[in-house]
């Protein structure tokens, strides 16, 4: 499976109701031995109700400058949330299905 198969796919909940699009995939680098860098583990997907393009990164980081741009992009991505791997039922190139009763988490990256 490649990342671009998933990015931009529609996200539907357990009842097949559309929630938005996959705007990003979150990974974590866990500690591991025996190689240069630890494994990149799939944590979950970031779902944006409007658009899959997330290139500027304002909505998830503590970037607030320049102000009008930051506000515009925050507003555009309002309502984005993170869904963890455990709550994903199927990853497809057209549709990503969530399990019934999935939990939506805050998508912001805090450092």
């Amino acid at each position: 499976m490649n990342l671009n198969d998933i990015l931009g796919s529609d996200v539907v909940d357990g009842d097949g109701q559309r929630l938005g699009e996959v705007s990003d995939v979150r990974f974590a680098l866990d500690a591991g031995a025996g190689q240069l860098l630890s494994q990149g583990r799939f944590v979950g997907i970031v779902v944006s109700p409007r658009t899959a393009s997330s290139f500027l990164g304002y909505e998830r980081q503590e970037l607030s400058q320049p102000w009008p741009l930051a506000q515009l992009l925050r507003w555009w991505h309002r309502g984005s949330f993170l869904v963890l791997w455990e709550d994903i039922a199927v990853l497809g190139s057209r549709e990503v299905g969530l399990r019934p009763g999935f939990t939506a988490y805050d998508a912001r990256l805090t450092r």
């Binding site: 990342l3 990015l7 529609d10 909940d13 109701q17 559309r18 929630l19 938005g20 705007s23 990003d24 995939v25 979150r26 990974f27 974590a28 680098l29 866990d30 500690a31 630890s38 990149g40 583990r41 944590v43 970031v46 779902v47 109700p49 409007r50 997330s54 290139f55 990164g57 998830r60 980081q61 309502g79 949330f81 993170l82 963890l84 939990t103 939506a104 988490y105 805050d106 998508a107 912001r108 990256l109 805090t110």
Partner: peptide, 28 residues
């Protein structure tokens, strides 16, 4: 494309933060 069902803000929980470095693929 049908309009997406809104996940209401009160349904969004604080995220569990994994140990180690977090990378968002598009961003990082």
């Amino acid at each position: 494309m049908s309009k997406a069902k809104r996940v209401q803000p009160q349904e969004i929980h604080a995220a569990p933060y994994p140990a180690g470095k977090v990378l968002d693929a598009q961003l990082h």
